[in-house]
Design a protein around this nucleic acid. Structure first.
Ligand code: MN
Ligand code: MN
Ligand code: MN
Ligand code: MN
Lengths: 224, 224
DNA sequence: TAATTAAATTAGAGTAGCCTAACATTTTTT
DNA sequence: AAAAAATGTTAGGCTACTCTAATTTAATTA
């Protein structure tokens, strides 16, 4: 059985690898940065994770999850997102509050618990942030979503997820009146700073490049 | 904030102190035995807990929780029992399965979570084992219950709780057709080994001394 | 290609939580 | 009251996870 620290390394490796081409591999410094620890700390842990055959990695090389490592990561991500859904749907947490608590709950060890929870929630497919929940088999639904910053002027989209999960970002999203499944119309784009004006629920708002890079959308007229 | 290890020491100290006179105090060896660690390990931890003003304790003396320590312990016990209730009522766990998972869930840190959970469960007063759930203020309902082994022949009682929470004991209780709120009639008692014959739901069964010492009862004709 | 910069690793150290073995104190028994 | 037993403490050591500082290797730039 893995320690909480080990689980966090594996989960982070999975998250990073889901954001890139499968064969790319992850660097020590990069992983350290994203986990808020020093590279030397990561280096120690990499040896342990390789020993346990959860990662492929050799000195000065890139890190990749093995099939087992990937499945392990998916289990943790599944728990994280199911707990977020529970907090949101059953306990009336807001979507900016769920992540922090789910960071703790994802480490509870009990297969029975997570399968019962899944059933209790009626087998949800997405968490409150629009992210797909992996199945018990470790499969994850990857829908080819766009980033708002790449949207075309004049077209209409549906917001499907957020990238950043921090409370400060999510609060801002809510403040602007935005939420999952909202329809977004692209009014204009500024060449200068790549800010854009968008229309949501009849209201026009201006958002920065940094903001629009953290909103995932789909073309409104695409089939699901 | 306390570590999981520290929380487990405090919780255990509370549990032990709830089973005796308030002023009695707890010994190092006794605590070590109940936590499955060595006395020297406990000794180290006692210094830390005293430093944090959670216990009163001096060299070669007995251990007692301070007011803060007691409140801390109550918070953990509250979480433990609320989670047990959740697992039992909402996720269809059996009463012998809940304890182990609650041992993990009791360490999740989030006031909001536990108060929302309490509300979601509609403010339960007792957990699946018949144990009272402490309030958010750290108060606990102490009803003066009897132990089945002290019951009188010919009288009728109501089972209100179990002492032992192990799956092996709880399974046996279920096998005998016994459960919380069942009516129990004392048919006879053997002087030789203090086993007793009792009647539950019309069925007569024989139980050992060790068994009857782990069942809590109340006189049937007492007001609640 | 040589120099420079970036990335990764190693060496050495600290804390928390556990252990065993030896020793000290207190309590109980004789 | 002395001896024996029980209880509690100290000393020293181990592992997991973290750090800083120094070093090595790889990648980039000149
Ligand atoms: Mn999250
Ligand atoms: Mn999420
Ligand atoms: Mn329990
Ligand atoms: Mn219980």
């Amino acid at each position: 059985m893995l320690s909480i620290a080990e689980e966090n390394y594996i989960k982070q490796l999975l998250s990073l690898s889901l954001d890139r081409e499968a064969k790319e591999g992850i660097g020590t410094n990069e992983l350290a940065l994203s986990l808020n620890v020093k590279p030397s700390t990561v280096n120690d842990m990499l040896k342990k994770l390789r020993q346990k055959e959860l990662i492929d990695y050799e000195k000065y090389g890139k890190i990749q999850l093995t099939a087992t490592g990937r499945k392990t990561g998916m289990d943790i991500l599944r728990k994280h997102r199911l707990w977020e859904t529970f907090l949101y749907q059953k306990l009336d947490f807001t979507w900016d509050e769920v992540h922090e608590v789910a960071e703790q709950l994802e480490h509870i060890q009990s297969n029975k618990l997570i399968e019962k929870l899944d059933k209790f929630l009626e087998f949800p497919e997405f968490d409150p942030h629009g992210d797909p929940i992996p199945t018990a088999n470790g499969e994850i639904q990857v829908l080819s979503k766009l980033v708002l910053s790449d949207a075309e002027i004049g077209k209409t989209y549906r917001m499907v997820a957020v990238k950043d999960n921090s409370a400060v970002f999510l609060n801002y999203v809510m403040e602007l009146g935005l939420g999952i499944n909202n329809t977004i119309e692209i009014i204009s784009k500024q060449d200068f700073d790549e800010s854009m004006e968008i229309k949501v629920k009849g209201e026009a708002v201006r958002v920065s490049k940094k903001f629009s890079q953290n909103i995932y959308i789909l073309s409104e007229n695409k089939k699901d």
